[in-house]
Design a protein around this nucleic acid. Structure first.
Lengths: 362, 362
DNA sequence: ACCGGAAATGTTTGCGTTCACATTATGACG
DNA sequence: CGTCATAATGTGAACGCAAACATTTCCGGT
């Protein structure tokens, strides 16, 4: 790898390709892969007809198509995506920006997006951004995806500064984020406030006087959205919102929060912003001999596969992650193809009742 | 979407593009995006020089490079990946095939691969395959990735039939699987037998007479590799291997297995093939009033974030998922660039001692 | 048999880049 | 100060495909 001209650093990072590594000799005419020209010759038709058959155009006689496909097999032809992109101006590729923290939700959303994209004939390329990155990392990732030809981009990282970080980029490349309030042209994929509302109301409905809250990583917009909604519900119902106990999505942070809660004598109900944190919370409570749900009820968010196998099994608000991914991908594709959205309904979270909540004692 | 010629179904699925959806008008000369020609004109150099600057070739005078980059900014030039691919014959893209089940390991490995690829200047495209798919789904995914220009492919699905399903494909496109025994040209990324060995020996060393085993989904080669090694260790140490209790990686299957184990009076130690299943096992044991690790020790595999927050905290054999992803990506890239492997060492699993194992009573 | 319109196919051109090779500038050395 | 090697730049062509447009074939209605 030879890099030249460090002085260029100050210029558009969006353009420079840093990975020069020697020339690649052009293949000689003999060992070149067969092209549509070869197929056309073998089938006795024009290259255009070959192109039409390959890309599924109508108006080709079945018999001709059959001949062409036979020729394809005979010469071992393989479609060349790059050439097609160059000629057509289309790549049928969407980019996904994800934060590089391994989590169930990450893979579920990505899988959903990939599936939906594949069904629509699109390919997904990914770019990851280190956790807690600043705006620059996001613009870099965006630029990388754009340079690879993404016709649209899904940002699976609802961070507050996204809209300003991306700036005018979102005008030339359709972009979808998690949330409407990102201001990047997408409808809300899932109503985070509804999640917090369902969780908080569930605890209040059970008879708890108030509900404590372990929040997620402040880096994520979900965290503040849920916190705000939780607070709003409490005020609405005449309860006093206790101070927020900060978390960062990790089980370890949940554990720390759990120790805090265990030390609060009159705490009887907690709304924890993720299942993983809830595991930590419950373990801390357990170690402090505070029974769940006997003394303290816990409701969380996500409904990961393990939620049902916590002790006690977690009552949680399910997020349809895969659907979120599907919806995001479908929405960008609609934007790319300038179609009307099939659905503008936000996805519905769902309260899954299990064993970690109960009415307060007495 | 118009589809024609169903009769073509029988021909190479590897070639046909099913997603014709009307023509896309070619953009007129005015609103066409600026190309290297425009930059060259603005900078007063040849397009070749522009190309050299953009792609980081050496042998360009710094002053010239600066002029070119200024022109790039001035005209708003953006590099066109497809055109470059066509001209150079290289796409700098690797494909990843993954099984569409959302799991921690999936995202961790993928993130690792994406990170390593990005560092080497490669882009990652993904194709998912439904869980429990037959060979056809894998070849389809492989073909999809190839048609998009993947220069190499990472298969994150160590299924037994991979080698035969992929057939000669792996000769033209460098392919890396999880395991050496895939026979698809990759070194073992992680030694599954070592995992089983560490887990089993740990329990035996604690003094247990024998070790029961809850296996993973038979679809995955890991399952049988671990089962074989577990059995081998037992025989080696003069213990009698009890019958395998089948699981499928899910917590629910672990729970079922746990109920089975709870009914076996003399079972004192279990090697569970994944942390998620271990949660299910432990819960079933707990419900059956069988103490862990008091009566029954449990050791599992993965060391997911939640492992430390199970009750009791899971003793488990950690798999370095992200490193696996990195190694896989680096290995394909080495194959693509025909370089010698930087390292052929398989990744080392690691036994993480926590609270779910103990010596047998008495 | 003739006509007209649609279906089927062919011809030409251009997409934006990099390669191979050609040429010109630069600088080290005798 | 001329001579080379080497660095720096330029020229022309090719990459494989689809768009646009041109042409031919087909077929139903008269």
């Amino acid at each position: 790898m030879t890099h030249s001209c460090r002085t260029l650093r100050s210029f558009s990072r969006a353009v420079v390709n840093a990975h020069y590594d020697g020339r690649m000799p052009r293949r000689s005419a003999e060992d070149r892969a067969p092209s549509q020209v070869d197929v056309a010759r073998a089938a006795g038709v024009s290259t255009q007809t070959v192109s039409r058959v390959i890309s599924g155009h109508p108006n080709v006689r079945p018999e001709t198509a059959r001949r062409v496909m036979a020729a394809v097999d005979a010469v071992g032809y393989r479609w060349h995506a790059a050439a097609a992109s160059l000629a057509s101006g289309r790549t049928r590729t969407i980019g996904v920006i994800l934060v590089s923290t391994a989590r169930y939700s990450t893979s579920a959303i990505l899988l959903g997006a990939e599936g939906a994209a594949a069904e629509a004939g699109y390919t997904v390329i990914t770019a990851s951004v280190p956790q807690h990155s600043g705006p620059a990392a996001f613009t870099d990732a965006f630029d990388r995806l754009e340079r690879q030809g993404s016709e649209g981009i899904v940002v699976l990282a609802p961070v507050g500064f996204l809209a300003e970080a991306l700036g005018s980029r979102v005008e030339r490349t359709p972009t979808v984020g998690h949330r409407q309030s990102d201001g990047i042209g997408a409808d809300a994929l899932i109503d985070q406030r509804a999640i917090a509302r369902m969780a908080t109301e569930h605890l209040l409905d059970l008879g708890h006087r108030t509900v404590w809250h372990v929040s997620g990583d402040e880096f994520w917009q979900e965290s503040s959205a849920r916190r705000d909604a939780w607070e709003a519900v409490l005020l609405e119902r005449g309860a006093t919102p206790p101070p927020v106990i900060p978390g960062d999505w990790s089980p370890a942070s949940g554990y720390r929060a759990g120790r805090t809660i265990a030390a609060i004598p009159d705490a009887t109900a907690v709304f924890v912003s993720s299942d993983e944190m809830a595991f930590g919370v419950i373990r801390a409570l357990h170690e402090a001999r505070r029974a769940v749900p006997g003394e303290i009820s816990v409701v969380s968010v996500d409904d990961i596969a393990l939620a049902a196998y916590a002790t006690p099994a977690l009552t949680t608000v399910r997020q349809p992650f895969e659907e979120v991914g599907r919806a995001a991908a479908m929405r960008v594709i609609e934007l790319i193809e300038q179609r009307e959205p099939v659905s503008v309904e936000p996805l519905r979270p769902e309260l899954v009742l299990r064993a970690s909540t109960a009415p307060p004692k007495g």
